[in-house]
Simulated assay, not measured.
Amino acid sequence: MKKEWTIAGIVEKFEANRDEVQAEQMAAYMKGHFTFIGIRSPLRKTLIREQFLTFALPKPEQLFKEVAKLYTLPEREYQYAAIALIEKMKKQLTVEDYDQLLQLIEAKSWWDTIDAIAPHFVGHIVKQDRPYGEKVMLEWSQSNNMWTNRSAILHQLKFKKETDVDLLFRIIQQHVDSKEFFIQKAIGWALREYAKTDAAIVKQFVEDTPLKPLSRREALKHIG
């Protein structure tokens, strides 16, 4: 029988594998925005897998309380563990969880967490109620928080044929003048990904829209 869930199991496993040399290298890669324990991705995934094998998952109503505990810990690996926990319980997410996900998007924000949360979790609940999801994403697109804007741009990244193209283009058009690197990059990424489904419409949109050079280059990278 599995033990009752506690993040203490993760903390114990991570601390037992602390590597100060790797921690410095990982912090440097992330431009010094975060401190690290020094656990590379393959080992981290193994340790988290062991956590799931040993401990029963928290109850759905406790999910974000446990996620919050991990997010309060200083090292970045704990935020990755929180995202892994949400992924494990992804089927439990509902449209009631937009606010919870938004809090994570706007906490300790950087591309590594946003690019997991937006396509995998936000996109998942948008599909549950597309009209309501569109309303929320348009609100996020108008946020003063750049990472919330990026999340709105990227939430359909994995939708393929289920992409609401009008919504995708509408959100992108709201940010074509942005000077933010991470917004320009997100626009190009979203368009490049949808081009795998419909290259012609993406090419036409790029031709008709005054995108920044970075966005345009990224969007057309595999189209020519």
Rank of each mutant, 00 (worst) to 15 (best):
K3Y: 13
E4L: 13
E4T: 15
W5Q: 08
T6I: 07
I10F: 06
E12Q: 14
E15H: 06
A16K: 15
N17I: 06
V21N: 06
Q22Y: 11
A23W: 05
Q25I: 13
Q25P: 04
Q25E: 13
Y29L: 10
Y29E: 04
M30I: 01
M30Q: 12
G32C: 11
G32P: 07
F34L: 11
F36N: 00
I37F: 00
I37P: 01
G38V: 05
G38H: 01
I39Q: 10
I39V: 15
S41K: 14
P42L: 11
R44Y: 10
K45M: 03
T46K: 15
L47T: 01
E50T: 10
K59R: 14
K59G: 04
E61G: 09
Q62Y: 10
E66M: 06
V67Y: 10
A68H: 11
A68V: 03
K69A: 15
L70T: 02
L70R: 08
Y71T: 00
T72N: 04
L73W: 02
Y80V: 12
A81V: 04
A81H: 04
M89N: 03
K90Y: 04
K90R: 09
K91C: 07
K91L: 12
L93C: 02
E96G: 03
Y98V: 01
Y98T: 09
Y98R: 05
Y98F: 15
D99Q: 15
Q103G: 11
Q103M: 12
I105N: 01
T113V: 09
T113A: 08
I114V: 15
A116T: 13
I117P: 00
H120K: 13
V122H: 02
V122R: 03
K127T: 11
Q128R: 13
D129Y: 10
D129F: 07
P131R: 10
Y132K: 14
V136F: 00
W140H: 03
N145I: 07
W147Q: 06
L157H: 05
K158C: 10
V165K: 13
D166E: 14
L167I: 12
I172H: 09
Q174T: 12
D177E: 15
S178V: 00
E180Y: 12
F182H: 09
K185R: 13
W189F: 09
W189Y: 08
L191R: 01
L191D: 02
L191V: 04
E193G: 01
Y194Q: 06
K196W: 07
D198R: 11
A199P: 08
A199V: 03
A200I: 13
A200P: 06
I201G: 08
K203P: 02
K203W: 04
Q204N: 14
F205Q: 02
V206A: 08
E207W: 04
P210S: 01
K212G: 04
P213M: 04
R216V: 03
R217G: 15
R217N: 14
L220C: 10
L220S: 05
I223A: 09
